Simulated scan of single mutants.
Amino acid sequence: MEGVLHELNLMKGLLAAFALSGLIGWERERHGHNAGLRTHILVGVSAALFIVLSEALVQTFAGQDDQVRFDVIGVLGAVVSGVSFLGAGAIFSSKRGDQMKGLTTAAGLLATAAVGVACGLHLYVLATGATLLFLFTLGPLSRVAEAIPQKRRDE
């Protein structure tokens, strides 16, 4: 029974990642972007799960053998690399090379993974604060950026 209670306690991080990643995904979804609600939730919860699993591995096996080495930082690096690979697939450029599409989507996926990692580490205030900053960036700040006149590159 103690094991089940411990796992339910670990689920708090996944549920927080679900909620916060869902907010980011919902914002993208309502603006019609390809990577929306489900994609962001999957990225955020997966990142949280990888962190929770790495901590569980350390707790389970750390005391069994001095020769066993744990690299939790490596897990974090693997999460960043994996999500960056997904983000790279979301980036497209025009044939002329003068216009990029998907950069915000790629950055949003990476940001969502970071929120998931924070939730996996049970840093809920940090994860919530970061989510609010990301939502501000994707919402009101994007309207400010659109209002700024851009200089043409061929001038």
Results as ranks from 00 to 15, higher is better:
M1W: 01
G3F: 14
V4H: 06
V4R: 13
L5I: 07
L8A: 10
L8T: 04
M11I: 13
K12I: 10
K12A: 11
G13I: 06
L14K: 05
L15C: 02
A17P: 10
A19M: 15
A19K: 10
L20H: 08
S21M: 15
S21P: 05
G22R: 07
G22T: 04
G22A: 04
G22N: 01
L23T: 09
L23C: 11
L23D: 02
I24A: 00
W26A: 00
E27S: 01
E27A: 03
R28Q: 04
R28N: 05
R30N: 00
H31S: 13
G32D: 02
G32R: 00
A35F: 05
A35M: 04
G36H: 01
L37Q: 02
H40F: 10
V43W: 06
G44D: 11
G44M: 11
V45G: 03
V45P: 01
V45K: 02
S46W: 03
S46I: 01
S46Y: 05
A47K: 01
A48N: 02
F50L: 10
V52K: 12
S54Q: 12
E55W: 15
E55D: 15
E55A: 14
A56I: 13
L57S: 05
L57V: 08
V58S: 01
V58I: 11
V58M: 04
T60A: 09
F61W: 09
F61C: 03
A62E: 15
A62C: 08
G63H: 08
Q67S: 15
I73M: 13
G74L: 14
G74R: 13
G74N: 07
L76N: 11
G77L: 12
G77W: 10
A78C: 07
A78I: 06
S81V: 08
S81I: 07
G82Y: 00
V83D: 00
S84I: 05
F85S: 01
F85P: 00
L86P: 03
L86G: 01
G89H: 00
G89Y: 00
A90I: 02
A90S: 05
F92Q: 04
S94Q: 07
R96Q: 09
D98T: 12
T105V: 07
T105Q: 01
A106S: 07
A106H: 06
L110Q: 13
A111I: 08
A111E: 09
A111V: 08
A114I: 12
A114F: 11
A118T: 09
A118S: 12
C119E: 10
G120Y: 08
L121I: 14
H122L: 12
Y124P: 05
Y124R: 10
V125K: 09
V125R: 09
A127V: 11
G129F: 06
G129Y: 04
G129V: 05
T131M: 02
L132A: 11
L132P: 04
L132I: 08
L133C: 15
L133N: 12
F134H: 01
F134M: 05
L135V: 06
L135F: 01
F136V: 13
T137L: 11
L138R: 00
G139Q: 04
P140D: 09
R143E: 10
V144G: 03
A145T: 12
E146T: 04
I148E: 06
P149D: 06
Q150K: 15
K151Q: 12
R153T: 13
D154E: 14
D154S: 12
E155Y: 14
